[in-house]
Design a protein around this nucleic acid. Structure first.
Length: 218
DNA sequence: AAAACGGGGGC
DNA sequence: GCCCCAGTTTT
């Protein structure tokens, strides 16, 4: 059964296994760029793949990368820059709305706490957690679909609700590993523990995994 | 051609 | 809890 020691061991196996792989764009943004760009990249990444997000974000940031400079672009222009992420009109609007609130109420500084982040339009627990953990180095568990899917496959958690996954993980994962989970499971989820046709035969954890919801096994 | 994919919000 | 949002990728 799962306990804190087993979780840590699994995370270390995965860190080894994925050590030489390129890191995803969004989960890497916080290491190199400011929380604002990380936040905007998170908005772009909603329901869109990492590579598409990366192209859109670089495109957008080449034109404007602060709340004030983004506000000089109208929604149409932003939409054009971030195409073809899904929901690009809605996201263009959200990006402007967030920029305006930041400029007016936060002196252009992204909040570093749950309450502040969750008060923004288009920001839910996943985005807030990623900004906290990757942008500010605070201990938050960011449950995106990779984390949700993979921990359920393992049998570490058993729920359809990402918020319950977050709670369950907070119970069992030592706090100094909270920030590592998301980047690690995202990279692992993109290349091995994929939503469809996961490469179970190449997975270092295949013996322990309960393969919950695995669609096609090869 | 059709199904799968991925967060948040509004109801 | 259910459904919508709009595009790309995979089958």
């Amino acid at each position: 059964m799962w306990n804190d020691k087993k979780v840590v061991k699994v995370l270390e196996i995965l860190a080894d296994y994925t050590a030489s792989w390129n890191r995803p764009y969004v989960e890497r943004v916080g290491e190199k760029r400011d929380p604002f760009q990380l936040l905007i990249a998170c908005i772009l990444s909603l329901r869109t793949k990492d590579e598409v997000t990366a192209r859109a974000a670089r495109n957008l940031f080449s034109q404007a990368s602060t709340p004030a400079s983004l506000l000089t672009l109208d929604e149409k222009k932003i939409a054009q820059l971030i195409y073809p992420v899904g929901f690009y009109r809605k996201k263009a609007r959200t990006i402007r709305d967030i920029s305006l609130i930041l400029l007016k109420k936060y002196n252009s500084r992204v909040p570093d706490n749950w309450e502040g982040l969750l008060s923004f339009p288009g920001v839910g627990r996943k985005t807030a957690a990623l900004v906290l953990s990757q942008g500010y180095g605070k201990p938050a568990i960011c449950v995106d679909t990779h984390v949700h899917r993979i921990t359920n496959r393992w049998g570490l958690v058993k729920t359809k609700n990402p918020e319950e996954t977050e709670k369950a993980l907070m119970e069992i994962v030592p706090a100094d590993y909270w920030q590592k989970i998301n980047p690690l499971l995202v990279i692992f989820g993109q290349r091995t523990c994929k939503p469809i046709s996961p490469f179970c035969s190449a997975c270092p954890l295949r013996k322990d995994c309960q393969k919950v919801g695995v669609t096609i096994h090869r």
